[in-house]
Amino acid sequence: MSLFQRAKKFDLGCFANIKTIRDHTKRKAFEAAEPERQALRYIIRNTTLPARTRAIAQLQLTQMHCYTRPTQIKNRCILGGKGKGILRDFKMSRYNFRLQALEGNLPGVKKASW
């Protein structure tokens, strides 16, 4: 998969390592190929079209590069690039979230007790 052309510009301000760069490339690839994917998906599901056309569309959809699939996209921590335990609200891993929250960098987030 490394043959895939990486996006020319890394237009994110987050922590950068090869994993975040790859994820960025995947997002770009998915964005670029989305209309094609949707058109093929539509053709595959359209029962009024001839079976051959639909089969061809199916083949073409499977032959598209795996980076153009939405399932390849994974949320990553903007401070450490971690891939697991990410809080979607803050785009941060749980530990970085805790550090930032204790430091008071996240507006409105306080230690809770109830």
């Binding site: 809080l87 749980r94 987030v109 306080k110 007790s113």
Partner: peptide
């Protein structure tokens, strides 16, 4: 009120967690 509970440290210390909240 949004609440998040995160482990204070690595997974083996899962028993000591911390609660955070944001009240709008």
């Amino acid at each position: 009120t949004e609440r998040w509970t995160v482990p204070k440290s690595t997974f083996i210390y899962k028993k000591s967690q911390e609660n955070f909240e944001r009240v709008t």
